[in-house]
């Protein structure tokens, strides 16, 4: 028994939505960043899977996923640096305490 691209897409969708849920709910900035990583991973999985089944010879999706990993690594590095800076400034990483945008 084997599975095709649809199963991978569904898996990626589930992972993405779990990450989205976490990013929308978690009050801790670190947890939000971790959820974002989960979403990125879901996207990477999707890219690789679709590339594997649609354009197996050119590996286009693998390259896209590789660069996505680069961007995600940069993002998490900057994000965590921001969290640290925020922590120094406000002594908290709780997103619901950070409401400077309040209108």
């Amino acid at each position: 028994m084997t599975v095709g691209p649809t199963a991978f897409m569904a898996l990626a969708g589930v992972l993405f939505c779990i990450g989205l849920f976490g990013a929308l709910t978690k009050k801790s900035a670190v947890m939000v960043l971790m959820s974002l990583e989960l979403m990125t991973n879901a996207v990477n999985l999707n890219l690789v899977a679709i590339s594997r089944f649609m354009t197996p010879a050119s590996m286009a999706g693998q390259f896209a996923a590789a660069f996505n990993i680069v961007v995600a690594a940069a993002e998490i590095g900057l994000g965590l640096a921001l969290v640290l800076a925020l922590y120094r400034l406000r002594k908290t990483v709780e997103l619901d305490r950070i409401d400077r945008l309040k209108g």
């Binding site: 990583e37 594997r52 996923a65 590789a66 990993i69 690594a73 998490i76």
Partner: peptide
């Protein structure tokens, strides 16, 4: 999915670097 290289950098970047980074941030905050 026969993407061996990606599996490798996935392990190195995420499992190696990002997790450590996250744990350090948790520790520092």
């Amino acid at each position: 999915l026969s993407a061996g290289f990606l599996a490798l950098i996935q392990m190195m970047v995420y499992a190696g670097a990002v997790s450590v980074l996250v744990l350090f941030t948790v520790m520092l905050t």
